[in-house]
Amino acid sequence: MTTNHTLHTATLKNNCPECFANNGLEFTFSQKETAHKLYVKAEKTIDEKLYCNSCNTIIYPVNWDDDIERVYNYNKKQVQPKSSSARLTKLGLGLIALTIVLVSALIYFALKATQL
């Protein structure tokens, strides 16, 4: 199961390159996280989107002007991405614990059998 987490959202006062409204632009930085049965892992890549709420369009980087680019660079520094290392779920931790207990029991009984 994949979920999309919003890391940072910023409202801009810049003019939209499409409709020229100055109160509808919004940057959204998000990161995908994939949950498996045994572990959860976030992707390294951060998805960035500039959306205009006035004309309901996505503004692609080709259409950005220098002012939008500066605001983008500032807001990109504000993003704190999730760690991309894998985290074990309760099921994963339980299986590891069960494996350790079973291996320990096998070693114990093997040593006890050799002493007889």
Rank of each mutant, 00 (worst) to 15 (best):
K82H: 10
P81Y: 06
H36I: 05
Q80D: 15
T57C: 09
I107V: 15
T2V: 15
K82E: 11
L93T: 09
Y39M: 12
C19D: 00
S83W: 12
Q31M: 03
H5W: 08
A42H: 15
T99G: 15
T89Q: 04
N4M: 05
V40I: 15
A97H: 08
V103T: 10
T34H: 13
L95K: 02
Q78R: 08
F109V: 00
K32T: 09
G24V: 04
Q80Y: 14
N23E: 02
P61H: 13
N56L: 07
T45N: 05
K41L: 09
N53Q: 11
D67R: 02
L25C: 06
L12C: 05
K76N: 13
W64M: 03
A21W: 00
P61L: 12
N15R: 01
K32C: 03
K44F: 03
Y60G: 02
K49R: 15
T3N: 10
E48Y: 11
L111P: 02
H5D: 06
S85K: 11
T114K: 08
Y72C: 12
C52N: 10
D65F: 02
E33Y: 12
L116I: 09
S83T: 14
A42V: 09
V79A: 01
S104L: 15
H5F: 13
E26I: 03
N56M: 07
A97M: 11
E33S: 14
N75R: 09
V103M: 12
I59T: 14
T9F: 03
A86Y: 05
N63S: 05
T89L: 03
N73V: 04
A10W: 08
K44Q: 11
N4P: 00
S104R: 06
P81M: 08
A86T: 07
L50N: 10
S85V: 04
H8A: 04
A21E: 01
S54D: 11
S84H: 08
Q78E: 15
C16Y: 04
I58V: 14
K82T: 07
L98V: 08
L102E: 03
N63P: 01
K41I: 13
V103N: 00
N15V: 00
D66M: 01
L88N: 13
S85H: 14
D67Q: 05
N22E: 06
